[in-house]
Design a protein around this nucleic acid. Structure first.
Lengths: 341, 341
DNA sequence: GATTGGAATGTAACTGGTTACAAATTTTTG
DNA sequence: CAAAAATTTGTAACCAGTTACATTCCAATC
């Protein structure tokens, strides 16, 4: 069933049918009704390709996510989708599986499909990859920290440095001094910022940092477990551990339990992410609550501004979102400042 | 940059350029090379719409998921995507948010976009909705239990009844008798099957079931917490609880802890799903491990068989996948049969 | 009654490709 | 060397819409 058949059935030309669909005000009321009846009856849907060929627009945006099994990322996705849905756009959600090659493959595939805009979440892409997208005239927004330095593209991200500073500062405030950090190895920038925040908090108190207290780990539960074991084996064991993710904290806490070390009595913990489970493990985890959904919403709004405004300039925008420290049991309650652990 | 410009630059007709892209063997080697060079240099990508207009094929499948924040569903999605990727297809992942209207909206949107096939995961759609998809000539596969009885559509699902039977059977085997069940309220069929499995196991041992031991709950951690409180308040408190999801178990275990009831010493638990966290909470949760990824893979393979075979008949196929019981600490170790709790 | 203007509709060019068929060129064969 | 066959390339119709421009029709104005 195509427009010609509809036109024939209604006894009009294809132009009139097309007009009913695109500029209904320019068609006489009775003609319009007759055509709408035929359309209804014959269940006609305009061919997507023919339409696209004329408008060169898909009402679709592409969304690259590092890992769809990670609910934190999916919260961003949901924020983006909420906005897209409102705007009557559809979202192409792609699972990059933390692999640049997969990201590149998806980017090519999405450009081919003529999507109207790109949102890259915590991307591993290089500057030149993103250049390639922009050269096609497709607006791009970065959400979350990305691996490389990407020029002239707006970005929405969390103030990780500030959040880490606040987290470690909290540990210091309640009396801890020997504070270690376990940080995930990708993407680098984000973790560097977290370490910076950690260092800044220590430095501010004149606490000299110890290299063996700064442990890199694969960002998984297992990674946290392994890194924690290294900390356990130290002569001078830390009394508090800040981890760059909740997953790492879970693994690390698990390691403590396996070695008979009590949390938070012997080692305090502060995580990062506030994933659902952090409120359910024993002890409940003090952690940084990130505004993931909001990040998606803000990123999507920015993208649609770019799509609507066409040629206009948003390139150097950088939006920093603040996060809150969610205080629970894992960091103990030792409020007496001055007592040194 | 379109095919005409490429043709002009290479000094050939558009037909030859098109052939280089679609039937390269039919073009003379040196002409082909010249054209490929021009394509490379000018970064030409064939227009997706024009191409689609001819082939009427998008190499895209649509995937409806009830909730993208639930990693179990995302494992199915990943299984599907793995297969699709291999086949050089792209996947449209849609988040239905457990709402029929949203599902319907996505179905319309995807049909409009001329996707080549549909996979509905735990769908809420009615039979007539699916009829509508089939009438458009688009192959459909159901993955996981769906709400209504949908006729003449192949389905891949887990043998929930068998799995629940095995789970409760295990509790009975290690000596429990007062066994309650907390089940989530959607989608109904799946939970009915789980209850059936539970009942079957009890009946087989001649244990009379008590209505107050069968608790419905919203399938969330909070829902489990609330349902567990109802069980705690009973005169005759159950000694073991089987939950239709791990989330429910987490909430229920949390409730126990809050009321000073020890798990598994006073109440044993068996969950369902084996989500990542079930191995990390205290005590580690005994649970049913579902082959989610496999379900996706099998469903996708089935869909591609249908796409490739076109008119052929797969309609009445029903594939049942078996799951395993993952035994951990939450159900205790009381092996002496005969000791009645 | 002729002229003008506006609304409704139709004709045909255009979007950017694919491909059947025709034509030109090259290679093989008698 | 011509004829036949095979290879390579071009012409133009086609996919299913949109829309600029042309045309028709009818009422309002002079």
């Amino acid at each position: 069933m195509n427009i010609k058949e509809v036109a024939k059935k209604a006894g009009v030309s294809v132009a009139t049918v097309s007009r009913v669909l695109n500029h209904p005000e320019s068609v006489a009321p009775d003609t319009k009704q007759r055509i709408l009846d035929v359309i209804e009856e014959s269940e006609y849907t305009p061919n997507w390709f023919a339409r696209g060929l004329n408008f060169n627009k898909t009402d679709t945006i592409g969304l690259l996510i590092p890992n769809i099994l990670n609910p934190s990322y999916m919260e961003i996705a949901k924020g983006i989708e909420d906005v897209a849905h409102q705007k009557n756009y559809t979202t192409f959600l792609c699972n990059a599986e933390n692999a640049v090659e997969k990201e590149r493959r998806y980017v090519d595939s999405l450009i081919k499909r003529r999507i109207d805009g790109f949102i890259l979440v915590s991307s591993l892409l290089e500057n030149e990859d993103v250049e390639g997208i922009k050269k096609q005239g497709i607006p791009v927004v970065l959400v979350g920290e990305n691996k490389s330095d990407i020029k002239d593209v707006p970005i929405v991200r969390i103030d990780c440095e500030g959040a880490s500073y606040k987290a470690v500062r909290h540990l210091i405030n309640i009396g801890y001094k020997n504070i270690a950090v376990i940080y995930g190895s990708t993407p680098d920038r984000e973790n560097r910022r977290k370490i910076d925040g950690y260092r800044q908090a220590l430095a501010e108190e004149g606490i000299t940092e110890r290299e063996e207290y700064i442990q890199e780990a694969i960002n998984t539960i297992e990674g946290g477990y392994i890194a924690a074991k290294r900390l356990i084996d130290l002569k001078r064991r830390p009394r508090a551990i800040f981890t760059s993710s909740d997953l790492l904290a879970f693994g690390a806490i698990d390691a403590m339990k396996d070695h008979g070390i009590k949390v938070p009595e012997e080692v305090a913990f502060v995580g990062f992410d506030n994933i659902r489970m952090s409120n359910l493990i024993d002890p409940k985890l003090t952690t940084v609550e990130k505004p993931m959904h909001k990040m998606g919403v803000v990123g999507a709004r920015l993208l649609f501004d770019m799509i609507d405004a066409k040629g206009e300039e948003f390139t150097n925008r950088e939006i920093l979102l603040q996060s809150k420290l969610k205080i629970r049991k894992s960091c103990g309650h030792r409020e007496r400042i001055g007592e040194i652990f």
